[in-house]
């Protein structure tokens, strides 16, 4: 019944799920973990404040991923950021532009922005032009964003989500347009480009941790504790594998392939 070579993966999945659910349970009981402050996260408030003072808009983009396949988990995390940024912008009367590349992300983003404006007590700010569908083609999408940044004199460019080749194109153009930039992605090939071109960057897993910090939800904060336990498990496995391979044993690799 169990597919061959899947036993170790299944056991690992059970360990991961148990650790995360235990972490969430502890957080819900009041034992919330302390998460180190992330500079990029603190910069979001400062950036929105700066855009408000300048009377110029904030631009948010979640990249070219969608909610079903390409980078779906990070796209879901980016919706948490969008919710926070939209609410904050509405409270500060700062103009917001959200650009999306996929139809399903458009539908979800539109709903998130509408809900955030409502929570801020300013539903009248919601208009069809706030969330804009550009194109599913990565370069058409990038070109569209660059046009918006330059035409509409955007002050702050926030890019958190799933990005591919277009990441550097957008980030560099926004830099030349004088935007303050905050970026984050889990795609390890695009992180160096963001580090080179942006003011603040969320690296890999920090995107998920930052989402938890923004929401302050016990379920999200507790999951971070669980993730740390899983990282410890992975570290022990890597160490054991390295030691056993050094002494010529294939025990760990055979265990993983079971």
């Amino acid at each position: 019944m169990l597919a061959s070579g899947m036993l170790f993966t299944l056991v690992t999945l059970v360990i991961v799920c148990t650790a995360i659910l235990l972490g969430i349970n502890e957080a819900r009981k009041g034992k919330q973990p302390q998460i180190r402050p992330l500079a990029a996260l603190q910069a979001i408030d400062e950036a929105i404040g700066r855009a408000t003072e300048m009377g110029r808009p904030v631009h948010f983009s979640a990249g070219v991923g969608n909610l079903t396949v390409r980078g779906a988990p990070v796209m879901m995390a980016s919706l948490s950021f969008l919710s926070y940024i939209a609410e904050k912008s509405a409270r500060m009367d700062c103009s917001l532009i959200v650009t999306v590349a996929q139809g399903d992300v458009y539908a979800a983003s539109d709903e998130v922005v509408r809900g955030a404006f409502l929570r801020a007590g300013k539903p009248e700010l919601y208009q069809p032009g706030v969330v804009r569908y550009l194109s599913a083609d990565q370069y058409v999408y990038a070109g569209g964003i660059v046009g918006i940044i330059n035409r509409e004199n955007v002050a702050v460019n926030i890019m958190i989500g799933h990005y591919a080749n277009e990441a550097l194109f957008i980030a560099e153009e926004a830099h030349h347009a004088g935007c303050m930039q905050i970026a984050g992605t889990t795609n390890e090939y695009q992180i160096p480009f963001f580090v080179a071109a942006c003011d603040y960057v969320l690296l890999g897993e920090e995107v998920f941790a930052a989402g938890a910090q923004l929401s302050q939800e016990p379920s999200e904060l507790g999951a971070i504790t669980g993730q740390d336990f899983v990282k410890l498990f992975a570290l022990i496995l890597v160490l054991l594998g390295s030691i056993s391979a050094t002494f010529g044993s294939s025990f760990i690799s055979r265990l993983i392939n079971r």
């Binding site: 889990t186 897993e205 899983v230």
Partner: peptide, 11 residues
Amino acid sequence: SGIGFMSQCLR
């Protein structure tokens, strides 16, 4: 990132 992905999917 993989661990973060799993946690996000589980939630």
